[in-house]
Amino acid sequence: MPPLRPWSPIPIDDAGEPLDELPATLWRLEPHPYQRLGAPYGAGASPFRLRRGVIVRLKTAQGLLQQQQPHWRLAIFDAWRPLAVQAFMVRHAFREACRERSLDPDAAGPAQAAVAAEVDRFWAPPSPDPATPPPHSTGAAVDLTLAEADGRPLAMGGEIDAIGPISHPDHYAEAPPGSEAADWHVRRLLLVGVMAAAGFAQHPNEWWHFSHGDQLWAWRCQEPQALYGAVAGEG
Rank of each mutant, 00 (worst) to 15 (best):
M1E: 14
M1Y: 11
P3F: 07
P3L: 10
P3N: 05
R5D: 12
R5G: 05
W7C: 04
W7V: 01
S8T: 13
P9T: 06
P11E: 12
D14C: 15
D14Y: 08
A15I: 08
P18D: 11
D20T: 13
E21N: 04
P23S: 02
A24V: 10
L26T: 11
L26S: 09
L26M: 14
W27T: 14
P31C: 02
P31L: 04
Y34A: 13
Y34V: 10
R36M: 07
P47D: 02
F48Y: 09
L50S: 12
R51Q: 08
V54F: 01
V56M: 12
V56N: 15
V56G: 06
R57E: 07
L58V: 04
A61C: 12
L65F: 03
Q68K: 14
Q69D: 10
W72R: 13
W72Q: 15
R73F: 02
I76V: 15
I76A: 08
W80P: 09
W80S: 01
L83A: 03
V90M: 01
R91W: 03
A93Q: 03
E96I: 02
R99E: 09
R99C: 01
R101K: 13
S102W: 10
D106Q: 02
A108M: 12
G109F: 09
A111C: 00
A113T: 08
A114R: 13
A114C: 12
A114P: 11
A114H: 13
A117N: 04
A117S: 11
A117E: 12
D120V: 05
A124Q: 05
P125H: 01
P126G: 07
P128T: 03
P128L: 05
T132S: 08
P133Q: 06
P134Y: 02
P134W: 00
P134F: 04
P135V: 09
P135Q: 03
H136P: 03
S137A: 14
G139N: 06
G139F: 03
A140K: 02
D143F: 04
L146E: 07
D150G: 10
D150T: 10
D150H: 15
G151F: 10
G151S: 06
L154A: 11
M156T: 00
M156C: 07
G158V: 01
D161E: 13
I163H: 07
P169E: 11
P169C: 14
P169Y: 05
A173T: 09
A181S: 06
W184G: 12
H185S: 06
H185K: 00
V186Q: 14
R188F: 05
R188D: 00
L189W: 02
L189Q: 13
A196E: 15
A196L: 07
A197I: 12
H203L: 15
N205P: 02
E206G: 01
E206V: 11
W208M: 12
W208D: 13
H212M: 07
D214W: 03
D214F: 00
L216T: 02
Q222L: 05
V231A: 09
A232I: 06
E234N: 04
